[in-house]
């Protein structure tokens, strides 16, 4: 564990200036639930830790029926999970936020941190991918936005340049007659990293046909990603048991899991199949209860 400087700027411009001028390695700190142990155990060796929790732009959590959800990068999972409009319009995101570790973790961990840590198994990412979320990035050379799916470049790696910060994630309002769900599989009932995670979103046309389906996977590829073949297989079809099963198999086929201490590749594929079907079923259940 190397000594480091700690800074907690209160404005975005101050933070960007610190990032731009820093000589050594700067690590932005939001909830700290990943970074603090990484630093303390010597897995990351920053010279400066930049606490972004005091920057108002990163603490925003607002819903606008036209714009959708603006989700500041430093907002904690428990604030998101208990936010009435998140629960109403983005229940899959609320579900995922309530799965990140324990209550104590959720009180600190942020969606921004979960994204920037770029773990293939990040629970909050698959629902955001299904919801077509976009990432807003600020840096020395100005601002940019990207689709969240293109934010990741592999385990622990993102497109952020060393002078850039993730400011917020913007989630468009959910499509009409849609429902989404996130499920993950862990060996215990709590306090584990996903062996596999699947988010699904289903948009029904007026009847029982599937107008659009979106499926995103976690922990079964170097980064969380959508499963377009599985999505395409559902489009325009009635969502019967056979269709769901097929989607699951296609999603499993798409997955590129590795074998590691948390699970074997073959098992992970099986889990993708099961979780895809189960999340789709959950979507249909929700739509049965009353489509939005």
């Amino acid at each position: 564990m190397r000594a480091f400087e700690y800074r907690a700027p209160t404005t975005l411009s101050e933070a960007l200036k610190l990032l731009a001028e820093a000589k050594g390695e700067v690590r932005p700190l939001a909830g700290g639930t990943d970074l603090v142990p990484q630093v303390r155990e010597g897995r990351k060796r920053p010279t400066m830790v930049l606490d972004v929790k005091r920057i108002s732009e990163l603490r925003r959590l607002e819903y606008d029926p036209g714009m959708g959800l603006r989700l500041g990068a430093a907002v904690s999972c428990s604030v998101i999970a208990s936010h009435p409009q998140v629960r109403r319009y983005f229940p899959a995101l609320a579900q995922a936020c309530a799965l990140v570790g324990s209550i104590q973790i959720q009180n600190r961990a942020t969606v921004g941190g979960n994204i920037c840590n770029a773990s293939p198994s990040a629970d909050t990412v698959p629902p955001l991918l299904c919801l077509d979320a976009r990432a807003f990035i600020a840096g020395g050379r100005g601002q940019r936005e990207v689709a969240l799916e293109s934010f990741f470049r592999g385990p622990g790696r993102t497109i952020l340049a060393r002078d850039e910060l993730l400011v917020e994630v913007v989630v468009p309002p959910p499509p009409k007659f849609s429902a989404a769900s996130y499920m993950r599989f862990i060996p215990r009932s709590e306090m584990d990293i996903a062996v596999a995670g699947v988010a699904s979103l289903v948009v029904l046309d007026g009847g029982r046909q599937c107008q659009e389906a979106r499926i995103a996977l976690a922990a079964v590829a170097p980064q969380p990603s959508r499963a377009p073949e599985a999505e395409a297989a559902l489009q325009g079809r009635p969502l019967d048991a056979k269709a769901l099963e097929e989607a699951g198999e296609l999603a499993a086929k798409m997955a590129k899991p590795i074998t590691d201490i948390r699970g074997g590749a073959e098992y992970r594929r099986e889990l993708v199949k099961v979780l895809t079907r189960r999340t789709l079923e959950q979507c249909l259940e929700a739509l049965k209860r009353g489509p939005r």
């Binding site: 060996p187 215990r188 009932s189 709590e190 306090m191 584990d192 990293i193 201490i261 948390r262």
Partner: peptide, 11 residues
């Protein structure tokens, strides 16, 4: 204790 998994209260 993340990957050496003791039972939690939910287990």
């Amino acid at each position: 204790l993340l990957d050496y998994r003791l039972p939690t209260a939910l287990d």
